[in-house]
Structure formats: C-alpha cells, structure tokens
Amino acid sequence: MNQYPMTAKGAELLREELQHLKSVKRPQIIKSIAEAREHGDLKENAEYHAAREQQSFCEGRIQDIEGKLSNIQIIDVTKMANNGKVIFGATVTIVNLSNDEEITYKIVGEDEADIKNNLISYGSPIARGLIGKSLDDIVNIQTPKGSIEFEISAVEYI
C-alpha cells in the first residue's frame, strides 16, 4: 500500500474537493443525465453522452481522492523544530550562484504541486536535490538548462 505524503493544507484541499464533487457536482450531473434522457433517443443524444462522460470523470476523481485520502501521511512541519534541514513540507529559499537570482519553493505532495505558486512536488528534480541538505549548503541541481549551483539561503517550517 502506497503512502502519499501530503501537507495538512493539501489534505484539507483534497477533502474540500471531494465534498464539492459529492454534494454539488454529482447531483448536477445526475440532473443533466435525467434532462437529457427526456429528449428521447439516447443513441444520437449528444447531451446525454456528454453528461455520461462527465459522470464517468467525476466518479473516477472521487475514487482517486478517496483512495489517496485513505493512504495519506500528513506531514505538518509547523509542529517540528526547525534544525535548518530541508525536509518534505519545508519552504526553501535558494540563490542561483551564477546570477544571484533568488527563488522560494515549498516542497509538497504530488497532488499539491503548482509551479505557478512555487509549490514543487517532493519527486521533482529540484526538490530531490534539496531534500536532506541544510541551510547554507551549496547544491548542484540538474535542470533542463544543465547543472546549476544554488546556495540554500533560508529553510522555514511554515
């Protein structure tokens, strides 16, 4: 059985999505199917087929979320003593030593990853290069542009 590491916030967001799918989306789809059925011949009823496809997607997502929630391992770094080590859930600021560019990432579970919000999956190359390292360490991280040297300038458990 696979454990899915997740932050407390990520688990809460998944629970909210599940609640929305079950209490809002599922009833809407059922209503759409019922309305489409009233239009008669189902073989050539595009609305009916679209609603059934939506239903299939929705039920699949519900099963996916329920499966993950039953196997999550919530890691709440805010309850841990910060020893400067980069761990799952940590917020890490790194400085690119070639151009002094600074960027901050939070290392999260796969379902929480959102690069636009600087949330990176623990399985990503950057996170793998940082996990286990400590404040002020210099790390080489393989990127699409080649190997880049970074210094870890801040490690926060927030």
Rank of each mutant, 00 (worst) to 15 (best):
I94L: 06
L97M: 11
E156S: 09
I138K: 14
G146I: 11
E101H: 13
N96W: 10
Q55D: 13
R52T: 11
N96D: 14
K31N: 13
K43E: 14
I115H: 07
M6G: 00
I141T: 05
E35W: 05
T104Q: 10
K106F: 00
K133I: 01
I72W: 01
A51K: 02
R61Y: 06
G129A: 15
A127K: 06
A154V: 04
D114L: 08
D100F: 10
L135W: 15
V108E: 01
I65Q: 07
G40H: 03
I94N: 04
S98G: 03
C58R: 02
E16L: 14
I115M: 11
A36T: 02
A154P: 03
E17M: 09
K133H: 15
A34G: 04
K25A: 15
N2T: 12
K116A: 11
K43L: 12
E38P: 02
G123F: 15
N117I: 07
Q54F: 06
N99C: 02
I33S: 05
E35S: 10
H49R: 05
A113G: 06
K43Q: 13
D41Q: 03
V92Q: 00
E12S: 07
I120S: 02
K68E: 01
Q19H: 15
D76Y: 00
I152A: 04
I148V: 14
I75S: 00
Q63S: 13
K116Y: 11
F150Y: 15
R52Y: 11
D111Q: 03
T93F: 00
L18D: 08
I65N: 04
T78P: 01
N96I: 05
K79M: 08
E149C: 05
P5Q: 04
G10P: 04
L13W: 03
C58Y: 04
E66F: 05
Q3R: 13
E112V: 01
E59V: 09
I94Q: 04
